[in-house]
Design a protein around this nucleic acid. Structure first.
Length: 554
RNA sequence: GGGCGAUUAGCUCAGUUGGAUAGAGCGCUGGCCUCCGGAGCCAGAGGCCCUGGGUUCGAGUCCCAGAUCGCCUACCA
């Protein structure tokens, strides 16, 4: 609908310009919005006011000229008005709205999809938590946001690849192996001094226990360093498979888990350093190798190879992104915890050095989650190994409620997650409100069926019967869906969908309470059944994008 | 000290690229099933959009300064 009106406006502006009614430099991109106020019609455009400044002409006069030169070829307009300082208001014919439902019926499960992304290849990297312990609640938000962004991009015509970067190299891994090894020694009755820097969680003891059961005291006699290597590998593999299981239970599935260790093995880091050197982006100072990130807007230069000859994590990260691009992705999206925001400039410096444009990388920051129980904070300390895991949250509140709750705020806004609230099956919990609308429509369908109605298709109904203001409002909301999906794809903002779902469910519940769908009038019943069926399709499609189920009964 | 982000109803937050009378949920007050699912609906109260300047036809939105809060500020990962 929006595109159609934009087309009409554009043609009219061209006509006006040809007739010399006013000067147009560049024709601005046509801006249209759905109005908040019914008196302003269905859509409004401010294009005349935009043109006014360059044309040095009264905006109302321009608006009049544009309106006069619009040729409504498809006959979709009831009327047009010039209002206020120069808005052009469009009033769409009622039957035009209901005709839009044909597309919903036809496309059904695919309604809302588009080719907005034109097949561009996008990689979304998210979660990427170090395999040093199970995922906790903080990781869960990033997991859902990444997953849903990927879903949205997929449905808007991008080719999407989901990837998890495993930091399985470096000092942390040594500490992990050492932690398990020390606990293992404890099991064997040795007195050990367990340092603060080691991982304190109980899962470390469990891993040590498993190794003991399997190998007994075999590693007691072996060289400690060799033993730790074995323990590290065992721990990483075990923890990682736990992470994968937890993500799976949360509905998050990756196309690839990318290992940092492999990156080194395949000389990715070496090659990167060679490239930086060749392009002269690096210099030596104090035995270390520095990358001139300040050339690209960073506040200070960064070390890529330490004095001891080891590349930094940052070097590996650029090498990783280099690898991503070499795999042919047009665009790379990284989803990071907000505490990493200081890394953004240097990451952009990295991709600039690789010869990539700024828009080849998009970084989404996800703010921290505060876990609450009945309004009171749940204390968490990762160091002390005391935290609520993702698994525990999913087990306690359920996957649907957990996912939905993480999507109710913009990513960069902090979020309170209340376990009791998320569990509650009441109107305080928005996920049920939306799912309830779906279940309710399903229930209506069952009743209709039992009364002998076939569920109608677009061709089976008389559109002229859907004329109540609530019905038009419902149709408008339903047909807005694809614009919402496209908007959230463009801005990478999944929360738009939860807000949209809430609006749609609200309009539906209101309609339901005021009007009967199934009545004595079978023609009217058919028309309304078709309408609510359309609502159900959109609810279901939107929930699917969020990875939340659309139950038929609750 | 420097950098980044935030500040909108009692609380938690939306607010598309600058548009007409600033929204939602919760909470609060009062109503609504003889009837398709009351996990629902309707109505009401509640606002110096942090402050002060600026930009323009027009600012919650953009720019500058200040206040308050949060985060970042390692040859860590």
């Amino acid at each position: 609908m929006k595109e159609r009106l934009a087309g009409l406006l554009e043609n009219s502006i061209k006509t006006c310009s040809d007739k010399g009614l006013f000067e147009t430099g560049e024709i601005p991109s046509i801006e249209l919005e759905m109005t908040k106020n019914a008196a302003h019609g269905d859509y409004a455009s401010n294009v005349a006011m935009i043109l006014a400044s360059s044309a040095r002409e009264n905006p109302r006069k321009i608006a009049e000229a544009i309106v006069a030169n619009i040729t409504d070829t498809e006959n979709i307009l009831d009327k047009m008005e010039v209002a206020g300082p120069g808005f052009i208001n469009f009033f769409i014919g009622k039957d035009v709205w209901s005709a839009l439902l044909e597309e919903v019926d036809e496309l059904c499960d695919r309604y809302g999809e588009s080719d907005f992304g034109k097949g561009k290849r996008v990689q979304v990297e998210f979660v990427s938590a170090n395999p040093t312990g199970p995922l906790h609640i903080g990781h869960a938000r990033g997991a859902v946001i990444g997953d849903v962004i990927a879903n949205i991009l997929e449905s808007t015509g991008y080719s999407v690849f989901r990837e998890y970067y495993i930091n399985d190299a470096g000092r942390q891994m040594d500490i992990l192996g050492k932690s398990v090894f020390l606990r293992y020694l404890e099991i064997l009755g040795k007195e050990v001094d367990f340092p603060m820097e080691c991982y304190q969680g109980k899962y470390i003891n469990d891993l040590a226990e498993e190794l003991f059961e399997e190998c007994g005291d075999e590693y007691l006699a072996k060289d400690e360093e060799d033993a730790i290597l074995v323990f590290t590998d065992y721990a990483v593999e075990s923890i990682l498979s736990g992470i994968k299981e937890d993500l799976n239970a949360f509905g998050v599935v990756f196309d690839c888990y990318f290992s940092e260790k492999e990156l080194y093995k395949d000389d990715g880091v070496t090659e990167l350093l060679a490239e930086l050197q060749k392009k002269e982006f690096v210099y030596e100072e104090g035995e270390a190798l520095w990358f001139k990130t300040t050339d690209f807007g960073d506040e200070k230069d960064r070390v890529v190879v330490r004095e001891n000859g080891e590349p930094t994590y940052f070097a590996a990260d650029i090498a990783y992104h280099r690898d991503k691009y070499s795999r042919g992705f047009d665009k790379v999206i990284d989803i990071w915890g907000a505490d990493h925001h200081g890394y953004i400039p240097r990451m952009y410096a990295g991709i600039h050095a690789l010869g990539k444009e700024k828009d080849a990388l998009e970084i989404i920051l996800v703010q921290l989650v505060s876990l609450l129980r009945s309004g009171k904070p749940v204390s968490m300390s990762t160091r002390g190994g005391e935290f609520v895991t993702l698994r525990e949250v999913v087990d306690e509140v359920g996957r649907d409620a957990a996912r939905y709750n993480f999507l109710m705020r913009r990513s960069d806004s902090p979020l309170d997650f209340d376990l009791e609230l998320a569990k509650r099956k009441s109107n305080e919990n928005p996920v049920y409100y939306v799912q309830y609308a779906h279940a309710r429509i399903s229930s209506i369908m069952r009743l209709a069926h039992s009364r002998g109605y076939e569920i109608p298709g677009f061709g089976d109904i008389d559109l002229g019967l859907l004329t109540l203001p609530e019905e038009i409002a419902l149709i408008k909301e339903v047909t807005r869906f694809s614009e919402v999906v496209e908007g959230s794809a463009r801005e990478l903002e999944p929360h738009r969908l939860t807000f949209y779902l809430n609006d749609l469910a609200s309009i539906f519940h209101s309609y339901y309470n005021k009007n009967r769908v199934i009545s004595d009038d079978s023609e009217l019943s058919m028309a309304r059944l078709f309408l609510v069926k359309s609502v159900r399709i959109v609810l279901k499609n939107a929930l699917r994008l969020l990875g939340v189920s659309a139950p038929e009964r609750m």
